[in-house]
Amino acid sequence: MSIVIEQLVEARLVADAPRMPSIPATLHYDRRDPFAVRMTFPAPATLEDVEVCWTFARDLLAAGLCAPDGYGDVRVRPYGPDRTMLEFHAPEGTAVVHVCSDDVRRFLTATGALVPAGQEHRHLDLDQDLAELMRDAC
C-alpha cells in the first residue's frame, strides 16, 4: 500500500474580478507526517511565479467542511452546499480559494483509509524525529 496520497483539485481564486480564475492545486498526504496535509499551487498560479505549498492539520480540513475552523494562517469553512473555502494568510496578503467539497471529502476518505483519524500517533517514528531534531541543533 502506498504511503502517499495526492489528489488534483480545481481551486477557484476569489478576486475582485467578475469571474474567478481556476487554479490547479494538489492536495497531498504522507503517512510519515500523519497529522498534516499540504496544498500546493503551481508556479504559474502564484504572484511570485514560484510553487507555493501550505501545510496544515488534516483535522482542520475535515472540520472546515462542516463549520468555520482555524485561527491562524489557514482557515477553512463551508461555502454553500457544495464548496469549501480556504483562506491562506501570509505577510504579503491573503489568498482565498474555493474547492469542491466532494473533492475534499474524497481526499479525506482516502487519507482515512491510509491512517484512520485518531490513529495518527501510531504512524510517528518519535526516535527518528528526535534524532533529526538533535542533529539539526548541532
Rank of each mutant, 00 (worst) to 15 (best):
L61T: 01
D102M: 07
V76L: 07
T84G: 00
G93T: 02
A62D: 14
A62V: 05
V74M: 03
A62N: 13
A90S: 15
C66N: 14
D73Q: 11
H89D: 15
E87C: 10
E87A: 14
W54F: 15
L61V: 01
L61P: 02
P81M: 13
D82R: 13
A95G: 09
F56D: 04
T84L: 06
T84D: 00
M85S: 13
G72T: 06
R75G: 01
P91V: 09
R77C: 13
F88Q: 05
V104M: 01
D103R: 00
T55I: 14
S101M: 09
R83N: 08
V97A: 03
V76A: 12
G72A: 10
P81W: 09
L65E: 04
R75I: 04
A95F: 02
R77I: 10
R58N: 09
D103G: 01
L61F: 03
D82I: 09
A95T: 11
G72C: 07
P91Q: 04
L61A: 04
F56E: 10
L65N: 04
D59L: 12
P91H: 02
L60V: 07
D103A: 06
E92L: 07
G64L: 00
L86P: 03
M85L: 15
R77N: 05
H89T: 15
L60A: 07
A57Q: 14
G72S: 12
D102C: 07
G70C: 07
L86V: 12
D73N: 15
L65S: 04
D102H: 08
A62I: 06
L60T: 05
D102V: 09
H98A: 02
L65D: 05
A95K: 03
V104W: 01
V97R: 02
A57Y: 02
T84R: 01
T84N: 01
Y79C: 13
Y71Q: 14
F88D: 07
W54G: 00
V76Y: 08
D73A: 15
A90V: 13
R77Y: 11
R58E: 14
V76W: 06
P81I: 05
R83M: 10
M85I: 03
R105M: 04
G70W: 11
T94S: 00
L60C: 12
A95Y: 01
D82N: 12
Y71N: 15
A90Y: 01
V104F: 00
C66Y: 12
R105V: 10
D69H: 15
L65I: 10
H98W: 13
V99L: 14
G70Q: 07
C100D: 10
R77Q: 15
P68V: 11
L61K: 03
D82A: 13
T94A: 05
L86G: 05
Y79T: 05
V97T: 10
A95C: 06
R105T: 08
G93Q: 03
A67K: 06
D82E: 11
D82V: 10
F88G: 04
E92T: 09
D69C: 10
G64V: 00
V99A: 07
C66W: 04
E92P: 00
H89I: 15
A57F: 06
A63S: 04
G93R: 02
F56V: 12
D73I: 06
A62E: 14
